[in-house]
Nucleic acid binder design. Sequence first.
DNA 1: ATATTAATTGCAATCCATTCGCAATAAGTG
DNA 2: CACTTATTGCGAATGGATTGCAATTAATAT
Lengths: 149, 149
Amino acid sequence: MAEKTFLANKLKSAGLRMTPQRKLILSILDETSDHLDAEEVYRRAKKLNSKLNIATVYRTLNVLKEMDLIEQRYFARDHGVEYYETVTKGEHYHFTCLGCRKIIEVETPKIKQVQAEFAALTGAQFTHACVCFEGYCADCVDSEESFTL
Amino acid sequence: MAEKTFLANKLKSAGLRMTPQRKLILSILDETSDHLDAEEVYRRAKKLNSKLNIATVYRTLNVLKEMDLIEQRYFARDHGVEYYETVTKGEHYHFTCLGCRKIIEVETPKIKQVQAEFAALTGAQFTHACVCFEGYCADCVDSEESFTL
DNA sequence: ATATTAATTGCAATCCATTCGCAATAAGTG
DNA sequence: CACTTATTGCGAATGGATTGCAATTAATAT
Ligand SMILES: [Mn+2]
Ligand SMILES: [Mn+2]
Ligand SMILES: [Zn+2]
Ligand SMILES: [Zn+2]
């Protein structure tokens, strides 16, 4: 039951209102481990609220991001599309395979270390880091090799 | 004199032609240590070739990037605009100050270490990494503090 | 419960960085 | 110089994301 009111409370303390659309959109991201772009969130949400509008999805994703309930990510070299995931998973980064487009999550303390070192050195304060790796996963490296042999 | 032909040779071996536009656009990035977006490259180049077109700038930046003569970067959380710099500087990453918009270059071996570890662990091959940090530089942290006191 | 008020939604129009189609131009070869 | 084909300039198009606005609805006070 604290569950039920968590979003509502967060919204209220920001002077915002709880709406079915916001609840729905957050639940979609909470219930998947995928990384979804706005279109995909819209597609999934629309099945449960057929008159939902894509503009509401964009606005809601921005609200949820501002409230630190979801994280916005970019993948691969072309950062033309934004993807989202809940913050419930711990700190991690992403590797995108250019062969099969699969996304592999990378856990490492080294990024935070870089930030700590730079902060100590310069006095800067970090608020955010965008880290995306790109290349070929083991499977795709193997099949490439059998091609080029 | 090897200078003069370096770009031409690289182009030729890719089946591409040397043009005044390409020479001009590369020279602009070679002669600055700033990170320029396409508009700014265009602005500067147009002073020297008034009939240059922005589409040519975009096409040329892509050609130069493909040939590994320049690097494409994203800065700060909003990756809506692409920036470019020459590859003559060594491997480095970027910190963007949200206060004064200044960009500070960060040198560290840790990013490559992350890649090496992940490659050893999974067999993946890396082709590219996009790493951008964001926060407040020491100057802006200081002036923020004097505000909130 | 009901009225009140301001936040939110749906919809369409708009933004804006980047790309694309195409005819005219120009680079490279011999 | 002539020929082939890459490249340019120009305008139109793209596509993800945002915005203006009138209608709706959530939250609060009565
Ligand atoms: Mn993830
Ligand atoms: Mn740089
Ligand atoms: Zn793969
Ligand atoms: Zn600053």
